[in-house]
Design a protein around this nucleic acid. Sequence first.
DNA 1: CCTGACACTATGGTCAGACCACATGGCTCG
DNA 2: CGAGCCATGTGGTCTGACCATAGTGTCAGG
Lengths: 235, 235
Amino acid sequence: MPAERASERAHDAVLRHIEGSLRSGGLKLGDRLPGERALAEQFGISRASVRDAIRALEVMGIVRSGTGSGPNSGTIVVSDPSSALGSALRLHVASQRLPVKDIVEARVMMETWSLAHAAGADWEPNQALEARRLLEAMDDPDLPSPAFTALDAQFHVALSALAGNSVVSTMMDSLRESIREYVDEAVSARGRWHDIAAELRRQHWGILAAVEARDGDLAARLVRDHIEWFYAQTL
Amino acid sequence: MPAERASERAHDAVLRHIEGSLRSGGLKLGDRLPGERALAEQFGISRASVRDAIRALEVMGIVRSGTGSGPNSGTIVVSDPSSALGSALRLHVASQRLPVKDIVEARVMMETWSLAHAAGADWEPNQALEARRLLEAMDDPDLPSPAFTALDAQFHVALSALAGNSVVSTMMDSLRESIREYVDEAVSARGRWHDIAAELRRQHWGILAAVEARDGDLAARLVRDHIEWFYAQTL
DNA sequence: CCTGACACTATGGTCAGACCACATGGCTCG
DNA sequence: CGAGCCATGTGGTCTGACCATAGTGTCAGG
């Protein structure tokens, strides 16, 4: 072995190049990557290896691929960490490497932190309006449970976004996504959904009121009780 | 649109099957997946599509692939979320979707939470001994900075593991990994590493002492100061 | 009987070329 | 001028082959 290792794997070269372009700013959100055939020729590797690299970036939520032509086609830099981390976490939960109990505990930690900081941060009133609008949509008593939980997720994300830390909101969202299927199954399995939804609505409005009143301690306490109560009901 | 979608993509079938096997327990840590050629025949798709699925699982840290034969060959379930999430986060940081400032802030949140809980949890003494052993190794004044920061990372993980929440330790480790290169570059760029390392050692011993003394509030405060001081020095 | 060298085998990694499904944009024809 | 159609370029899939690797069995020679 004369040289240490020129490039362990063929597709690693593409990955390193793209990461470098991202760091240097040569590749920004919304930009399109060259076509797979062009990249293959550019790096002197086969298209299959290029696809390996693209697949890796897609799984990590860095790019999105679309067929056909036009603005929605090709491989585009999107940087969507939430769903990517959520999918990965979901599989690790499935492999029993990460217990659901720890996921919930981590979520409580992040949401309490977020709301405590949100109450003290300075945010535009329309951001809180977004949360209020979601709650109003959830007040519809005829809302099916999947739609309710979807709005529920958006509400929590919108609230935590007020803290101004994108990493925390992203991870919080990922944690929720990773166990969403378990929650949906549990919700649809047991009855009393109507009663549970009513209680959730009450808790949600209380949390929003606490944040709007800038009472961080109260908001943190309410959201902790909210999450723990819900998971005690379902899981 | 008569039927909704039988199977959007060819490789999705493999992914869903493997996730199902993980959830049902039919596939556990350390198990070997069938060979790529066998999977291709089993699902009636090409080997290229099977490889797409395997690649996705590998990027998510669910499996590890090795060539040749023997115990280290084939595709094996490993479930290593830390490095997978770390790589993904690193790229999102590179794309400027996630600011380094938020990463550090999230790390402070998780480490303070971990140490506060570690002080109150009941753990085996040998777990704390592991942390102590790492600190003793770091006391070597001739230790090069990369080795120091590697031990540093292990120390923080070992301490946070005492809290008993694998999700929080995993995410903490991923956050650290995601900005490791930035830190290493900053450390090697500026001088005074010797002085910085000395201060880090002092802080580390203080944190460990606080945890061993079961003083959660002090440990949390010290680790916050520790992290914020270090990043103020480097970034 | 032991021992070492060698071929065999099965694994993932790579390559090449082809075809398919899709979506757009421009072209043609009414 | 407008509606329909097709050329074009994208990723997605398939096929079949070959390569690099690392155990394992085999066989010749001691």
